[in-house]
Design a protein around this nucleic acid. Structure first.
Lengths: 226, 226
DNA sequence: GTCAATTTTTTTGTATACAAAACAGGTTGG
DNA sequence: CCAACCTGTTTTGTATACAAAAAAATTGAC
């Protein structure tokens, strides 16, 4: 991949936000970031501009950039849209998947099973990501795949929190199995509805999400400043 | 709205791309743009960075920025996703719309009717946009509304081409009426399916789109350079 | 001692300067 | 005659400089 300074900086900062190194609401001081990465302010600004276009940071004119802090309601909305896009990808995948796609889906699913068996939450988290990307790819819609991937990245921190919830890993895995079955059977509508409920944050999971968010708020130094 | 130079430039250039002033594939020379807008290269670059994050321009390292030229297949994919998101907005609107939303939808629909009656294609184009935005708003999902609006903007030029097709305005209007009916009746699934087929580029419309695209390619100075 | 106004300091926004990479054209060798 | 190479030019990428605005701090009045 093309590797200019601002490009790398963009990924670094995005990663910092997504992993929580830069907490929601935190100020992103240009000079400070420049010093930290050993570059001038120019590429830092360019990186921040890109992140603001994506919606990860908010640049307030003359008042600096901050990491956006989507409230629980907005995070819920994002999951809602994610569910719709993913279920669309699943439906398309059911109709369009090739032998290669099938192999990739089965392989990533098998990895998930192994990680779940060894109860390795971090490993499962990664394999789960690969599984979902395999479905995006199988949709054979480049644009949809990109949109899904972008949203998936943005929701990363919240999904990670969710996986901590009791038994979620096992439940997730059995849902995966049902999704795989529907896709490989070519049953678009079943794949759609199963993926929708797999991704959506419904019922108990919403309160789990909210509580994990408020937990983080209180421990972190971020949140609403001033 | 906040109005810094780079912010205004971003909108200017975006508008230029969307209206076709900057054609797909065209090189966006930084110095040239800077001279044109009477500013230095710095805010131009920041604007281009944002546009590249959105996906409107492609910045190739050390090789300058060009207006992205999505092929017919990719444009089709974008309409496909747009249809899904809009139909989702419609379904939510059916369940969640308030009296205000209802008024806004009916009002914009009435405007569409008038424009269609006077066969004013440009006016209809604008009113149609307001109508769709009213539905986004009625979904009461801020994130979904933003996503819809963003995609809507990106597909603007192609939708405009489509409206030129024989009788499309009348057909579009009657579809609108059916959509309004479903939303106001609170019938989420009917609203969803009607919006989906309203937005999607199916059957004949796809070949119409492709032919209008190739027409533009041949007349314009853009296209694949070198 | 508190609050308001003014000054100081910090920080953002834009312009300019400079280095390095890509491009174009001509030249030399086969 | 064609191809590879070298050189001059253009253009991008990053650093620095400077102006203007916002934040912070100090002073002064009550």
């Amino acid at each position: 991949m093309a590797a200019n300074t601002f490009h790398k900086l963009r990924d670094e900062i995005e990663n910092g936000i997504v992993t929580g190194a830069f907490e929601p609401g935190a100020r992103l001081d240009e000079a400070q970031l420049a010093a930290r990465f050993g570059v001038s302010r120019t590429p830092i600004r360019e990186a921040l501009m890109q992140l603001s276009a994506i919606g990860l940071v908010e640049v307030r004119p003359r008042r600096g950039a901050i990491v956006v802090d989507p409230g629980p309601d907005r995070i819920f909305e994002m999951f809602e849209v994610m569910a719709e896009l993913e279920s669309m990808a699943g439906a398309l995948a059911a109709r369009r998947h090739t032998e290669q796609d099938k192999a990739a889906i089965l392989d990533s699913h098998a990895r998930c099973e192994r990680s779940a068996a060894s109860e390795d939450s971090d490993s499962y988290y990664y394999d789960n990501e690969v599984f979902h990307y395999a479905i995006y790819a199988a949709s054979h819609s480049g644009f949809l795949a990109e949109q899904c991937a972008a949203l998936h990245r943005r929701l990363r921190p919240y999904r990670r929190l969710q996986l901590r919830v009791r038994n979620r890993m096992k439940v997730s895995l059995s849902e995966h199995a049902a999704i795989v079955e529907a896709i490989l059977a070519g049953d678009a509508e079943t794949a759609r509805s199963r993926l929708r409920s797999h991704v959506a944050v419904q019922g108990d999971r919403f309160s789990d999400l909210v509580s994990s968010l408020s937990q983080r708020q209180s421990t972190g130094t971020g949140g609403q400043p001033r």
